[in-house]
């Protein structure tokens, strides 16, 4: 997306795209992975060029913000992830401990085991956090 290319550091976008691609290739039931800014812009996505990824980016940032607000209201801390299970697949949203604040939205077909998907997605999040700190 042209606008987001001007909005974010190209190095961040390249790094995000590389991590998302490696993740999706290692987890074949993942149909879409989007790295999103806190205010709902797509930073990187795999596969790239999907029309839905910008919408998923905006929606996942809203849901991430809502889940953080709900966490605060419930008196809980350290919001980690949001899981939506459907009859045909799973959407997972994970907040990253990063500057700027980012989140990951992962969409997977129902063949993917939830625990494996969560484990792999958290690993991806940790790798991104680690890379962004460097």
């Amino acid at each position: 997306m042209t606008i987001s290319k001007q909005r974010f550091d190209p190095a961040l976008m390249r790094l995000g795209a590389q991590h998302l691609e490696a993740f999706a290739l290692a987890n074949p039931d993942v149909t879409l992975a989007v790295l999103t800014s806190g205010d709902g812009f797509e930073v990187a996505a795999y596969p790239p060029g999907q029309q839905t990824s910008a919408r998923i980016a905006a929606m996942s940032s809203s849901m991430q913000a809502l889940s953080e607000a709900l966490t605060r209201e419930a008196g809980l801390t350290d919001n980690r992830n949001l899981i939506i299970e459907t009859g045909s697949g799973t959407v997972m949203i994970l907040g990253l401990a990063s500057t700027p604040p980012l989140s990951l939205a992962i969409v997977a077909k129902s063949g993917e085991l939830l625990g494996k998907l969560l484990w792999a997605s958290r690993n991806l999040g940790a790798k991104l956090e680690s890379s962004l700190r460097k």
């Binding site: 974010f8 800014s37 806190g38 205010d39 812009f41 940032s61 809203s62 913000a65 700027p100 604040p101």
Partner: peptide, 10 residues
């Protein structure tokens, strides 16, 4: 209020 403000990149 419950707020969901995030850093503005726009």
């Amino acid at each position: 209020p419950v707020s969901t403000e995030m850093r503005n990149h726009d």
